[in-house]
Design a protein around this nucleic acid. Structure first.
Lengths: 228, 228
DNA sequence: TAGATTGTTAATCGATTAACAATC
DNA sequence: TAGATTGTTAATCGATTAACAATC
């Protein structure tokens, strides 16, 4: 008897973190198949293209719903729409970037943002000399203008692309302005309140992990094999 | 009776993937404490600074060895040396970057590389117009020169910073040249042989994960809380 | 009906963490 | 000796995957 539990709305199964990341990958690969004119795909084929186990793919998709056809596969257009919906890509999300050095420039010019429903609404730098520069259709503003831009945007995500020394201060300014989700490219652990969501991308750490694996080749006992 | 197992060298416990990533973080934070002139630290304090559970930190460190002092803590200099050693940072690792657009520029100019024992030995681009440009002390070369540079380097890590359309071809060139570890910034799943190690950093995916979390605030049932 | 493939259950595997004996 | 903190065990938790009933 499954009982009460399934009635409680708070118990609705939340999508695991790892699954969310993979759904984004599935979505991108699905779009490639659609561009090629395909209409239906099996979990086996899609999983191969995404570099995952078919069972894992089906399980991941099942968190969003069940809209495949047994004996046939998934309708690619339906799958795309449902995943995009689940990932919140039907509405545009605003993004502000703090720090307009090399990395900030790269992020600001990254076409993938707009392609996936993100809109860059602000570029900020503490360095006077960078103020006024135009990147794409956005002009670099002084960091003091951050609160005004955040207030005008709808729940923007803050991206920190400053040097490590400026990262904590950038985070504080973002939080004070009302930002609750931060993507941190600086190699610093940010000290933030619990309710602020932070993700960290650390280039040097990624290289260190690769470096470690290389050194330990062969020492490994049957590992999971993170293929691409 | 623990027996034979502990004798078999292949059974030597390998360091888990997730642990390797955190060791790199611990190392960076330890270096900050050393700069401040500190000499000893408890797992509790270091764990707080790194945003992890003290038990997890001790467990992670124990994969590398046991060199703390009960009742006292860890000697910071010893801990740094052992972690750096375990992560293979005592010897310099060579790095080549394929694709010198905005992101390639950012990576080439990233000071954190040299600071953590990585040496940029080659910059390559398929676009004629970019050949010859000097970034730092490295000059951009035509992609055809890749094999020669890789052959001269010691097991370099290949970084792909091309647009998505050029990523698979870049990967193939790297592999043909003899590279076995690849860090992929392009938003494409690379099709590579099993023995090639690939890590993927996808900016848009990171934003999508943040975006998803934001949308589902409150729906979550007591989650792990990935603090900073 | 026979063949194929999903959706889901249950088993497995690995990672996190509480707890505590060891020991400084 | 008393207090502190490590190193490690064992329990918990969550994620992966094999397997198969459901069903097109």
């Amino acid at each position: 008897v499954p009982a009460a539990e399934s009635i409680n709305p708070a118990a609705r199964r939340s999508v695991p973190e790892a699954t969310v990341g993979r759904l984004a990958i599935y979505l991108r690969v699905i779009e490639e198949y659609l561009r090629d004119g395909d209409e239906v795909i099996s979990s086996a084929e899609l999983a191969t293209s995404c570099g995952v186990n078919p069972a894992k793919l089906r399980k991941d998709v099942s968190f969003v719903g069940s809209f495949g056809t047994r004996g046939v596969g998934y309708d690619l257009a339906v799958l795309r729409d449902r995943l995009a919906d689940a990932l919140g890509l039907t509405e545009t999300r605003d993004v502000v970037i703090v720090g307009v050095g090399n990395l900030g420039h790269a992020l600001a010019g990254y076409g993938g943002l707009a392609a996936r429903g993100f809109r860059l609404v602000g570029l900020f730098d503490a360095d006077q000399r960078r103020i006024g520069e135009r990147i794409g259709h956005v002009v670099v503003q002084p960091i003091e203008d951050l609160p005004r831009v955040v207030a005008a945007a709808t729940a923007p995500i803050g991206v920190i692309a400053t040097p490590a020394t400026g990262a904590q201060s950038a985070a504080q300014r973002l939080i004070d302005a009302g930002v609750t989700s931060i993507l941190n490219f600086a190699s610093t652990i940010l000290d933030v309140p619990d309710e602020i969501e932070v993700r960290k991308v650390d280039l040097a750490s990624e290289l260190q992990i690769l470096s470690f694996r290389e050194r330990n080749r062969g020492e490994r006992i049957a590992d999971g094999g993170t293929a691409s």
